[in-house]
Write a protein that binds this DNA or RNA. Structure first.
Lengths: 103, 103
DNA sequence: CAACTATATGAACCCATGTTCATATAATAC
DNA sequence: GTATTATATGAACATGGGTTCATATAGTTG
């Protein structure tokens, strides 16, 4: 196929780098269990067992997901005695605010 | 564990229904090949072989992804002779505009 | 100290889905 | 008609990652 130049209006390869990291982020937040966790943390700080009750899934699973979200800089934790309280970071808030605008 | 009522500030189960459909959408657009396609279509209408050249993947794969995006109402197609031109729908534009705000 | 609770984590399992392959369809050119 | 090009699609494959299981760690209570 040869229909002349249109590369002027198509992203260059280097712009796809942003696409790659955006894809990584969207895969993280797109998973349903993690999205539910974000939805809960949007309401404020909560410990693991509170989240566990409300999305009705195992403690282990939630800990795994929280770890992933933490490593991505979306949430942070604060240990108080036995409990570990998680909340959204600034980045986490910005992104979830954007996502939940989608209708 | 019993630390009293906090359900007032946690989403009810029915609110997770939105989470479910949002998750479906984010999984769709979060996949890197599809995200690249959306990135290209943001620039305007393009046929399959144009997209194929620019993201350097097989025709078959791109057709599959375009079908998925079409079924989700993100893109529409217009056949002209041999070529099939795809573009973003209104919904597709709104969503990609939001997504590419994420930094 | 032992018993219990909350949380973390590595390994294994299993399934969804992205990708490839082969082929079909449809439009064009000759 | 045949040949070629652009696109679509079903089936098979293969890999990633969500989930579970078992266990470890750490704090609390008595």
């Amino acid at each position: 196929m040869n229909m002349g130049s249109y590369s002027c209006c198509i992203p260059d390869k280097h712009e796809f780098k942003h696409v790659s990291s955006l894809s990584t982020l969207l895969k993280l937040v797109g998973e349903e269990s993690r999205l539910k966790i974000l939805c809960i943390l949007k309401q404020g700080q909560h410990c693991v067992c509170e989240i566990e009750e409300h999305i009705n899934q195992s403690q282990s699973l939630i800990s795994h997901h929280l770890k992933d979200l933490k490593e991505a800089g979306m949430v942070l934790d604060e240990k108080k005695g036995l409990y570990n309280y998680y909340s959204l970071t600034k980045k986490g808030k910005e992104i979830t605010d954007l996502l939940f605008q989608i209708k």
